[in-house]
Amino acid sequence: MKIRFAALAAVAGLSGALALSAPAQAARGAEADVQVAQPAGVSALADYTLCATIYTNGTAAGRGCFSSYGDKFTMDDYKSDGLRVVAEWYTDYGRSGECHYTAGADADPGVCNYDMREDGRVNFRVAVRNGSDAANSAATSWSGYVPIGG
């Protein structure tokens, strides 16, 4: 399984892509209290997008992106395999959840919009699974903490 992370500078055109509203469902997970240092090279007030692409059987299966401005996950499914694409996330202040993309490979990207603390940090990974609470079929590694506030 190949895993790729790309940090992209958010531009005005990205805000239009984030405004799309296809089926993506937010779910709350267990809370955890985790404290870590802010990653080097990322400003607390940076406006950026961090994306993770999940691969299964050597091909891209889906993608999840976190946008620091607006606290949003934009999700997309690349394979018609019946699996959903999920962004699992948790913050450094004890909040966690999942963004489920269930529209399928032929649909537009979906967005989960959260109201996270602007002074916090979030860590996420992208997974594929069969159903809302089944075990992950595959998952990327965790992103590492990045600032939320944009």
Rank of each mutant, 00 (worst) to 15 (best):
K2G: 08
I3M: 08
F5R: 15
F5P: 04
F5Y: 13
A6N: 13
A6Q: 12
L8C: 11
L8T: 14
L8M: 12
A9E: 04
A9S: 14
V11D: 15
A12S: 15
A12D: 15
G13C: 02
G13W: 01
G13D: 14
L14N: 15
S15K: 15
S15Y: 14
G16W: 11
L20Q: 13
L20F: 11
A24N: 05
Q25Y: 11
Q25A: 11
A26S: 10
A26K: 09
A27Q: 14
G29F: 04
E31V: 14
A32W: 11
D33Q: 09
Q35C: 09
V36M: 06
P39F: 00
G41L: 01
G41R: 06
V42H: 02
L45W: 06
L45I: 10
D47M: 04
L50R: 11
L50V: 02
C51G: 05
T56L: 13
N57C: 07
N57K: 15
T59W: 09
T59P: 00
A60L: 08
A61L: 08
G62C: 05
R63T: 12
R63P: 01
G64P: 00
C65K: 07
F66W: 09
S67C: 01
D71S: 15
K72R: 11
K72T: 06
K72Q: 14
M75L: 11
M75V: 01
D77W: 04
D77F: 04
Y78M: 13
S80F: 07
D81C: 05
V85F: 01
A87H: 01
E88R: 12
W89K: 10
W89A: 06
W89I: 06
Y90D: 03
Y90E: 07
T91D: 00
R95H: 10
S96E: 06
G97P: 12
G97M: 03
H100G: 10
H100Q: 03
H100A: 11
H100W: 02
Y101W: 07
G104R: 07
G104L: 05
A105C: 06
P109W: 07
G110Y: 03
N113F: 02
D115N: 15
D115V: 13
R117K: 14
E118V: 06
E118D: 09
D119G: 05
D119P: 08
N123D: 13
A127M: 08
G131V: 04
S132I: 12
S132K: 12
D133V: 10
A135H: 10
N136D: 15
S137P: 03
S137V: 15
A138E: 12
S141K: 11
S143W: 01
G144R: 09
V146S: 05
V146G: 06
P147T: 00
P147R: 00
P147W: 01
P147C: 01
I148H: 02
G149C: 04
G149R: 03
G150C: 08
G150T: 01
